[in-house]
Every structure is written in C-alpha cells, then in structure tokens.
Computed example of a mutant assay.
Amino acid sequence: MFQDSPIYDRLVAERGDVPAGVREEADRLRREVEAVMLPLRSPRAPYAALPPPAAPPSQWQRVHPLPGP
C-alpha cells in the first residue's frame, strides 16, 4: 500500500514495520484461540454430553422472604 513512499520507508527504518508486526501478532492470537476453542467444537468434548441448561421460569418468583417490619 505505502511501500513506494519514501516517508513510509523512513518510518519502517526508524520504527520497524508496525502493520506487519500487528498482522503477525493477530495471526498468532487467532491460532492460539482456535487451539483453545477446538476441543469445545469437538463432539467428543467432555461437556458435549451434558444436557443444555434449564430455561428460566416463565414467571417471576420470590426466592427469599422479604425482611421483617
């Protein structure tokens, strides 16, 4: 994109290729997240056999009594 610009070349020489560094870090993080999330997508995951969580009650219910007078 800016590779033919002398200003860009000077900034890369002074500061390094920041956009390339950001892309590399984003790719590394994406691979790390995929590695962590992969077992959750697997049908053999230990939690896959658990039933889905129960739906909340359809009406409001008081769980604790109101405080005294």
Rank of each mutant, 00 (worst) to 15 (best):
M1R: 13
M1P: 07
M1C: 06
M1Q: 01
F2H: 07
F2Q: 05
F2R: 15
S5P: 02
P6Y: 00
P6D: 07
I7W: 02
I7Q: 00
Y8F: 04
Y8N: 01
Y8M: 00
D9T: 10
D9E: 12
R10I: 04
R10S: 06
R10A: 02
L11V: 11
L11T: 12
L11M: 12
V12C: 05
A13M: 03
A13T: 07
E14I: 07
R15W: 00
R15P: 00
R15T: 01
G16W: 11
D17I: 09
D17N: 14
V18L: 07
V18Q: 03
V18P: 03
P19N: 10
P19L: 02
A20M: 04
A20E: 03
A20R: 14
G21S: 07
G21D: 05
V22W: 03
V22G: 00
R23L: 06
E24H: 09
E24P: 00
E25K: 08
A26H: 06
A26L: 14
A26S: 10
D27Y: 02
D27G: 11
R28P: 09
R28Y: 01
R28C: 01
R28F: 09
R30M: 12
R30Y: 12
R31C: 09
R31K: 05
R31T: 14
R31Q: 12
R31W: 06
E32F: 04
V33S: 07
V33N: 10
V33M: 12
V33C: 07
E34Q: 14
E34A: 15
A35S: 13
A35I: 07
V36K: 10
L38N: 03
L38R: 13
L38A: 14
L38D: 12
P39N: 08
P39Y: 08
P39K: 04
L40G: 12
R41K: 12
R41H: 10
S42L: 06
S42A: 11
S42M: 03
S42R: 05
S42D: 15
S42W: 01
R44L: 15
R44N: 15
A45I: 08
A45L: 04
A45K: 03
P46E: 04
Y47P: 08
Y47M: 15
Y47V: 15
A48T: 06
A48E: 05
A49Q: 15
A49W: 04
A49L: 13
P51F: 02
P51L: 13
P52F: 11
P53E: 00
P53C: 01
A54S: 03
A54F: 00
A55P: 06
A55N: 10
A55H: 10
A55R: 15
A55D: 09
A55C: 10
A55V: 14
P56H: 03
P56I: 02
P56S: 04
P57I: 08
P57N: 09
S58G: 11
S58R: 15
S58L: 13
S58Y: 08
Q59D: 14
Q59F: 10
W60E: 15
Q61Y: 07
Q61L: 15
Q61D: 04
R62I: 13
V63P: 05
H64N: 11
H64P: 01
P65R: 15
P65N: 09
L66W: 11
L66H: 08
P67G: 11
P67K: 01
P67F: 09
P69K: 07
P69F: 09
